[in-house]
Nucleic acid binder design. Structure first.
Lengths: 133, 133
DNA sequence: CTCCGTGCAAATACTTTGCAAAGCG
DNA sequence: CGCTTTGCAAAGTATTTGCACGGAG
């Protein structure tokens, strides 16, 4: 279980880019963002590193929104809001499921629950305004 | 708001197939299931009808699991458990988010919340057993 | 006859992968 | 130098779409 020698400048930059935003970006976004600084960066590398981050639990997937996977460097469980109009993914503090309920439900169904995620859907502030026109 | 003339035997069969199971099937599963009875059914038709069901709110998407979208004819909001090993999607009764919390969080963030979904992840009973070997 | 729904196949969109070359220690 | 990471392009998978045909009213 010793640590692997997994380091590279690009890997670091990809993780930094992911951590630099709370927009829960796509692989493509990270690629475009880093491209100016690393002109020879390739999309495959972004995907490979994201997959690795996920294994190492340095990042998680928020799910697929409009056909593209969204990533999050915030590994602590928290609630997300997804705008059904523009696809924005926004962190929502203060919405929880009681641990008791989880434990209870798990027991009842024989499930081993490792994580719990809440997703709200609706209109984000921007789209809300735009819709009223 | 008058009803469209959207009827066909296949359309009905697709909806029935979706309603006949609680396994939250993929488009492919529905296709394979119906193929014996409708030898000339095409996958495109399944996709088209599923998309239409979603618009008409006869079905919802549970999300993408292992690259495939999972559908559910149970439109009422309820909690899902996703097995991280085999990808099974299972209904879980009795886990809720308090409506107060939702309203509160929505106000605070200026969000218009239309729906709320809880997803648990872990190992299903089958995979749990298989893992202990 | 006029539409709507469909089969079929081609097109899309996103992600993964094989392989040779470059990079790190 | 040995092993890891990457670029590139090809492959893979899931889903969508264009078009002409077939069935219902």
């Amino acid at each position: 279980m010793e640590k692997k020698r997994n380091y590279s400048k690009k890997r670091e930059a990809i993780l930094a880019a992911l951590r630099s935003t709370d927009a829960h970006p796509t692989a493509e976004w990270i690629y475009q963002t880093l491209k100016p600084r690393f002109p020879d960066l390739s999309l495959g590398t972004v995907y490979r590193n994201l997959a690795q981050f996920r294994e190492e639990k340095l990042a998680v997937s928020v799910g697929v929104v409009n056909g593209q996977e969204r990533f999050d460097a915030n590994v602590k469980p928290h609630t997300h809001f997804i705008c059904e109009r523009c696809g924005a993914v926004i962190d929502v503090p203060g919405v929880f499921v009681s641990g008791d309920m989880l434990t209870h439900a798990a027991r009842r169904c024989g499930l081993q629950v490792d994580s719990c995620e809440i997703v709200l859907r609706g209109l984000c502030p921007v789209c809300r305004g735009r819709n009223q026109k």
